[in-house]
Design a protein around this nucleic acid. Structure first.
Length: 490
RNA sequence: GCACGGAUGACAGAGCGGCUAUGUGCGGGACUGCAGAUCCUGAUACCCGAGUUCAAAUCUCGGUCCGUGCUCCA
């Protein structure tokens, strides 16, 4: 079964092909590190994490590069406003980035190059573009000349070169651009800004050139996948096509372009000006980061997601269902499992039928992921498997069969919900009680009440038992009666 | 204006020519003294119009409505 993906440039699903057999070279545009990451970043890097995981799961050797943009207008502005050195802002936010991504169970890329480490490379690409007459030196920097390669215009967005609004959104250009569509490769120094020396005087690189320099350095002149948010399509990625292809002569530099959809907030575009802006760390204080991850993979990566309370609530329910059943499976495991029979969907024997169904779910999951990384469909299959597992563990199967099945179920879940989707916490995390200082504070009181309640229940004094439950609820304690006695949690 | 993408049950969200998506929510039921969890089960769909087809959420054409980009943005 071949992996197919939606290629932005070709505007259709195409069979995935790699330049080198068995190897995938992938570059995803990283963040500009001037602030904490928000939900939009979470969605993007979770989407590409899923792609990363699936490619590796499929047997590819993946080289995944993601950059940090560590110099730009916003960083400079932030520094000027706060009086904090721009380098410190950048370092702090990179550290925060890693923390956030770890929370969301995002596997690390192989390298995280910073653009300021590639100034030399960017200068040399710019020189090459000038030599090839694709770029020109102006009074305030070096610009790429769109007119030098008009056939490359609109490769990703399909825009017509003449159709683009003149004057770039109404802004009066004071720059030395020959054409408003041209974009900067090098910006001459302005007072109070960090600068680097160049053949065109001190200054700093333009934004688009950095990704060309870094991807080329790590992945070569041609590579397999380039990803990013849909907002980068224009002008950033189109600029990369201009630069990369004109500089290297490769057509194309990027084999497959992938773009993820936006996150909206209650139907509106998420943006700082609207104030409807959630950072990853804000939201993770309120909910389990894996629930957020679940919510974000519970839609196809190219569709927009409307973030709201309801969505998180649903994600929480689904997620806890998966965890509950996983936990049950863990608890039912045994040391020396019996060999399981071969599954068969048509079988009348519950164990054999369930095993057959789970095999089918796994196949369907693989098929879904192979079809442009359809994580929503994959999630549905995991939930289907969860149902089968719950059913069997709930049934009156022989203990030994059940526990042997539990071993299989644990492996099944760890493979698909864990390895592939990344929504399963570690065994330790799930089996250990959450450490909450409040728990110890009220422990003796709660245990006392529970003892009374157990007594009342033994005497079948239900009103008294319920009254005690109410008291516990007032303390914020939930009691669940199990075969081994009451269990409580905050 | 130009470009790109959508419209599926109460909600979220897959499917994209014939076959139960899935989950939440709601209605029954099993198990439970109650509660919780788990399982079984029911109801509620495919924006409108025309066409193609033995067969259309699924393909074609025409509408309507809604997003997004064209400026820094994941």
């Amino acid at each position: 079964m071949a992996l197919r993906l939606h290629d932005t440039r070709r505007r259709e699903k195409v069979v995935f092909s790699t330049i080198e057999p068995g190897k995938v070279k992938m570059y995803v545009c990283g963040v500009t590190v001037y602030d904490f990451c928000h939900l939009g970043h979470a969605r993007c890097y979770i989407a590409f994490d899923l792609i990363h995981r699936w490619l590796e799961y499929s047997g590819y050797d993946v080289l995944y590069i993601q950059n940090f943009t560590d110099i730009d207008d916003k960083i400079i502005k932030r520094s000027n406003e706060s009086g904090i050195d721009w380098k410190k802002i950048v370092d702090d936010n990179i550290e925060a980035y890693y923390e956030d991504m770890d929370l969301l169970n995002i596997l690390r890329a192989d390298e995280y190059p910073r653009c300021t480490e590639y100034v030399e490379e960017m200068i040399s690409i710019t020189e090459s573009l000038i030599d090839k007459e694709h770029a020109y030196v102006a009074k305030d920097g070096v610009y790429f000349s769109i007119a030098s390669a008009p056939e490359k215009y609109g490769m990703l967005t399909g825009q017509n070169i003449d159709g683009v609004l003149g004057g770039a959104g109404g802004r009066v250009s004071e720059s030395g651009k020959r054409d408003h569509k041209d974009f900067a490769l090098w910006k001459s120094a302005k007072p109070g800004e960090p600068t680097w020396p160049s053949p065109w005087g001190d200054g700093r690189p333009g934004w688009h050139i950095e990704c060309t320099a870094m991807s080329m350095d790590h992945l070569g002149e041609q590579f397999d996948i380039h990803g990013g948010g849909q907002d980068l399509l224009f002008p950033h990625h189109e600029a990369e096509i201009f630069q990369g292809e004109c500089h290297t002569g490769c057509k194309p530099v990027v084999n497959h372009w992938l773009h993820n959809g936006f996150v909206n907030m209650d139907g509106e575009k998420m943006s700082k000006s609207l104030g409807n802006f959630w950072t990853i760390r804000d939201i993770c204080e309120k909910i389990d980061p894996l629930v957020l991850r679940f919510a974000l993979i519970n839609a196809h990566y190219r569709s927009p997601i409307d973030m709201n309370e309801q969505l998180l609530h649903d994600a929480g329910r689904n997620h806890s269902r998966i965890l509950t059943v996983y936990k049950q499976a863990l608890e039912n495991q045994c040391e020396n499992p019996l060999p399981l029979p071969k599954g068969d969907v048509a079988s009348g024997v519950p164990l054999i039928k369930s095993l057959g169904l789970m095999e089918k779910m796994a196949e369907a999951l693989a098929k879904a992921m192979d079809d442009d990384f359809n994580s929503r469909e994959a999630v549905a299959k995991v939930l289907g498997g969860v149902r089968e597992i719950g059913k069997l563990l709930d049934s009156d199967l022989e203990v030994k069969d059940k526990s042997s099945f539990a071993n299989f179920a644990v492996e099944w879940m760890e493979e698909y919900a864990g390895l592939v989707l990344g929504i399963l916490p570690s065994r330790d995390e799930i089996m250990t009680e959450k450490v909450d200082p409040k728990r110890d504070e009220i422990r003796s009181e709660v245990e006392d009440l529970l003892k009374q309640r157990t007594e009342a229940r033994a005497n079948k004094d239900w009103p008294a038992a319920d009254a005690i439950r109410d008291k516990l609820v007032a303390l914020g304690v939930t009691v669940v009666d199990t075969a081994d006695g009451p269990v409580w949690e905050l």
